[in-house]
Design a protein around this nucleic acid. Structure first.
Length: 271
DNA sequence: CCCGATTCCTGTAGGC
DNA sequence: TGCCTACAGGAATCGG
């Protein structure tokens, strides 16, 4: 399920194939995604020349001379570059046909993904306007987390998964970062010291960078734009490891639901 | 404002 | 073997 490292892996995979290319046409087979694909999108896209493929949070930005494509992979979405003649398969919802007989193909079984076309400033789009800092940017610091959390009683895990606080931290990496920082996921965010928030910010950026270096995490269905899985799964310390010994103390990893999400942690090492 | 619950969707795993 | 149910989760939105 794509979190920031998986989206960044996808971005790096498709960028060389898109930048400088012209999108000849869009083919939308299924408009019912997380947000309905606008009826006029095909007309807006046709003829657009891609200058750059960017990323904001978990959104891919297809920057062109005619606007910006705003693509979210949801939790089961993937992009592949295929021959334009390759017949579409089940859940292949959108094709962007490129010059050179290639095609960027969006597949999303659960349809939690989305595609918008934005003219003007993409950062002002309603999906992006309220987002917090990028976790791998200088704006993301322990001090930011500390100040954003004062007075909040919400558990720290849903706090760091809140995109207004910091973007790109999904369920897997939230558990991993909290383990690395030695912080119990249930601890109220507003009761964590500035020093421990520094550790948490460092843990978040460290685990995300490490995951990007491994091409992301494949649990069951994530593949990059060439159809290859990511290899960070074997580096996950707590996620999906309920009952296994904690590498720090040997106590069994616990699993419980926090903020409606399955959470993994060591009761002994995380306080 | 704060925060928990609900909602969208389908593939997969587990129980019987 | 096969059916049925629970669960997975990003993130907007609703309700208290």
């Amino acid at each position: 399920m794509p979190e920031l490292p998986e989206v960044e892996t996808t971005r790096r995979g498709i960028a060389p194939h898109l930048e400088g290319r012209t999108i000849l046409a869009a083919v939308v087979r299924e408009r019912r995604l997380r947000w309905p694909v606008a009826a006029g999108l095909e007309a807006q896209v046709a003829g657009a020349r891609v200058s750059r493929v960017g990323r904001r949070a978990k959104y891919l930005l297809l920057e062109t001379d005619r606007g910006t494509g705003l693509l979210h992979l949801g939790m089961s979405g993937s992009l592949r570059l295929v021959d334009a003649q390759l017949p579409p398969q089940r859940h292949d919802h959108v094709d962007l046909l490129l010059d050179g007989a290639r095609c960027l193909r969006f597949n999303d079984p659960r349809r939690f993904g989305s595609l918008h076309w934005v003219t003007g400033d993409a950062d002002a789009h309603w999906l992006l306007a309220q987002l917090g800092p990028e976790p791998l940017s200088p704006a993301f610091t322990g001090d930011h987390l500390y100040r954003a959390s004062r007075g909040l009683r919400v558990a720290v895990k849903p706090f760091i998964m809140n995109a207004r606080v910091v973007v790109g931290v999904g369920n897997i990496y939230a558990s991993e970062a909290l383990f690395r920082a030695g912080i119990h996921p249930q601890r109220p965010a507003g009761r964590i010291s500035a020093t421990r928030m520094q550790r948490l910010a460092a843990a978040i950026s460290d685990v995300l960078m490490a995951a990007i270096a491994q091409g992301g995490t494949t649990l069951r269905d994530f593949t990059d734009s060439d159809g290859r899985p990511g290899y960070f799964r074997q580096h996950l310390t707590v996620y999906g490891r309920a009952g296994e010994p904690c590498p720090g103390c040997g106590a069994p990893i616990r699993q419980r639901v926090i903020g409606q999400r399955s959470t993994f942690y060591c009761h002994h090492c995380q306080r």
